[in-house]
Design a binder for these strands. Structure first.
Lengths: 397, 397
DNA sequence: TAAATTTGTTAGTATAATAAACAAACTAAT
DNA sequence: ATTAGTTTGTTTATTATACTAACAAATTTA
């Protein structure tokens, strides 16, 4: 039974976490400054800091500048007390990163995927993880967790229920990987992963209510409310790509029709481009990258096509802004490549359609880490999990 | 500065609240049962219960049944320690209720509104509140708060920024009423109020992730996540009536086009009914009530019209289910009157369009308290606020 | 050189939960 | 009727942890 009652351990855990987070975000900082900043007594801070030193989660780095009295002892967060792994499992690639506890990328592994069958992909995935584990420097806590972002529906138990573009169904990925490496594993939807990456390290650092639009082959939305990912009842929140923006519109593979992603995704872009019957372009060479080149060299049809996609992105973004009243919308994933061609159309549509009060103080950005958002996002989630655990478990004895 | 640190008072407040809520929800109950149930030590429970007795928030009602030993002392929540006021400020009515601390309606006041100008309405509103205050029985805490649900955009400071159907703009309603009665006042959007009412006392009792669709003249959505109302950055969340479901669709007064509420609200229903040019029906007599009579007497056109409205309700509900993955959707406000004609169309649309995994375990209901949802909802919010305050302030001395 | 200031530690105090013992009130078995 | 066992609620002693206040060390400033 999970206890809901208050007690001394709870108090200590709250305060120890508070001190650790203060050091994490405000370092270099002294004990006295922490006491001042968070409102804990100097003695309390001293004793919690000493525990954190023992835990090796922080370290002292000699005396700092005096401000007219005894010189303070500078405290720093121990980035390198452990490392975390984040994997972005894409439709035709695997990107793996090893990060330190501050989320800095230490090692990166890229693999192209030519096959999508589970049996093959899982082997490549395991080899990527092995490589990253082997590449990790010696540290006190070792690899603290493995996070994996997946383009599909993931439930609360880490099972991939369905990943349409991979052709996967009902795969207990978490159990599989956890058994293999004996390290805590988190399976996360790719949009959620990206959202968290941008919230912690990217365009969303300053905000706590963020909608991250993952615009790739399909469209998914990562929802961050009050600084935390929102999952819904079973973990399926954010399937905004299947919101209907055109009643009786195009048929969708999901069984519905008129879904947003049929008009505003990479899939939509390529499909419309096909209709233009461009000379010298085959099904193999057709790609966003190519369309961007054409647009950059002045092809009006393609430019208009991007504007149309931008307009339709605006439609869906308008809808979620009116529903959520977020502080920030971040557009991420593959379509960010076309930022220069999309941005104005999106902004224009929002300006002309979204409720005026909802537009006030609203920030619309493109993802900062683009390619890395999802990988560093899941890595960060494992770090959070580890630090929370560290603070509560380590003082249990 | 609001303290974020943990300390003894925090622990006590958590536990005292826990004990109070247990009594509120599980009464009649003994000290021993509480200890067993929440996991607090018997002595701790005893001392907290004694404080709550002193606060008059609970009372003892003599010995209960023995289960083979000393007979327990039965504890009950003191419903009547104070009273709360909830107002539903509609477009053409004011409904006011006085409730006890359990949300039971004690007195009810109804006023028709023929005028909408702020100056007139505010006077009627004040008289309704006065009547309710005067009708309240003598009690230890008196009137603990006044909640007012308003059909418009309300910000975090209790200002009504705009209420289109009332023709109001930038009105500091909270300050006005608070100055008048010197009792804490909460101004709440009508959809949020309804959502909370249904969550606490109605169709949503069992669930913590609920979307309440307030389908009246327009459409608003009250969003309950993890058991709490979600407000967004400025308090404007839930304007789902202005989500676009038809690109380049009908023009909306909000400046956009193709908005959901143009196809699925009471406004849409009446407009479509007008187009049917029904004999013997004037602009004055046209109403949902009348259309229901016609449908009930077998008018095919009207029946089809209701089915069409139901289908369009399904479109928007589909969208928010895919986005939120909620446990429950509750349809409330005026259109609930047409439940019998709408229900099947809505369910059919959801069944055929909404993602299969999102449909699993999903509950779609109509509001239980219909006419009263909003009024008891805001009243309940004031009760919550009062009880929270009571527990933390009363032990501060 | 002395006074003032800042930092970090320590000793004692306060608060609130817990464990354990206990008394009172009751049931059930003999 | 007597006795044993059970349940309830209180009390006492213990424990964990934050807080207050005093203090020493280190440093700047007058």
């Amino acid at each position: 039974m999970k206890t809901l009652t208050g007690n001394q351990q709870l108090v200590k855990q709250i305060n120890k976490t508070l001190v650790l987070e203060t050091i994490l975000h405000e370092a270099p900082i002294s004990r006295a400054d922490i006491s001042q900043k968070v409102g804990l007594n100097k003695g309390t801070v001293s004793s919690l800091v000493n525990e954190l030193l023992e835990d090796q989660l922080i370290y002292e780095s000699g005396p700092g500048q005096s401000s007219g009295g005894r010189r303070p002892v500078i405290l720093l967060f121990n980035d390198k007390a452990g490392f975390s792994i984040g994997i972005d499992l894409g439709v035709n690639y695997i990107l793996g990163v090893l990060t330190d506890l501050r989320g800095n990328i230490i090692v990166e592994v890229n693999k192209k995927l030519t096959v999508r069958s589970y049996e093959v992909v899982i082997e490549i995935l395991q080899s990527v993880i092995s490589d990253l584990i082997n590449a990790a420097p010696q540290s006190h806590y070792g690899i603290v967790g493995i996070g994996i972002g997946v383009p599909g529906l993931v439930n609360n138990h880490g099972e991939v229920l369905v990943a349409p573009n991979l052709g996967w169904k009902n795969i207990n990925l978490r159990e599989e990987i956890e058994n293999c490496f004996d390290i805590p594993v988190l399976i996360e939807n790719e949009a959620n992963a990206g959202a968290y990456g941008e919230k912690l390290y990217g365009a969303g650092k300053e905000n706590d209510n963020i909608l991250y639009i993952s615009a790739g082959i399909g469209i998914g939305v990562g929802i961050i409310l009050n600084g935390k990912l929102f999952y819904g009842m079973n973990g399926f929140s954010g399937e905004a790509g299947h919101m209907i923006v055109q009643v009786n519109g195009k048929d969708c593979t999901c069984g519905s029709s008129g879904c947003w992603e049929l008009y505003a995704s990479e899939k939509a872009l390529l499909e419309e481009a096909r209709k233009l019957k461009l000379t010298g372009i085959t099904e193999e060479t057709l790609s966003i990258e190519l369309l961007l080149e054409l647009a950059n060299s002045g092809n009006e049809d393609i430019i208009n096509l991007f504007h149309s996609i931008g307009m339709y992105l605006g439609v869906g973004i308008n809808n979620i802004i009116n529903i959520f009243n977020p502080e920030q919308v971040i557009i991420g994933n593959r379509l960010t490549m076309a930022k220069d061609w999309l941005e104005k159309s999106i902004e224009k549509f929002i300006k002309n359609h979204t409720m005026k009060y909802h537009q006030k103080d609203l920030i619309i950005s493109f993802s900062k880490h683009a390619y890395y958002s999802a990988a560093i996002g899941v890595s960060a989630q494992m770090i959070d999990q580890f630090l929370n655990n560290a603070v509560s478990i380590l003082d249990a004895q």
